[in-house]
Amino acid sequence: MHELSIALSVLDIVTTAAAGAGLSRVDTVRLRIGRATGVLPDALRFAFDCSKPGTPAAAAALEIEEVPIGGRCNACDRDFTSPEPYVLACPLCGGGTFRITTGDELAVLDLEGEP
């Protein structure tokens, strides 16, 4: 359910950026979301669509670029990337502890629209 608060934050950021750039209508909003954030893209799209009426992004489409979880294993000291939504052990050696290096992203990248 935290997707709703994230959708509202996205709309705040988009409304501010659109006003700053003189856009009256936003057509596309591009996000980057890492899998380690636990944010579900479908739930976020739904929350965004429910919340966008009355904003400059009322007709905007959300494009979500997902980033897989990557880490560096503390046991074998190698970098890995995993297609899984949860990573519990190093996929290379099975080591149980690692540092997450990618997958924590949660950002608005850019938006497209008309003045």
Binding site: A17, G20, A21, L23, V108, L109, D110, E112
Partner: peptide, 14 residues
């Protein structure tokens, strides 16, 4: 027109 934003979504909370 494309506008670069690159803003952390949880920035307001942070």
């Amino acid at each position: 027109m494309k506008v670069k934003v690159v803003t952390n979504i949880l920035k307001a909370n942070a």
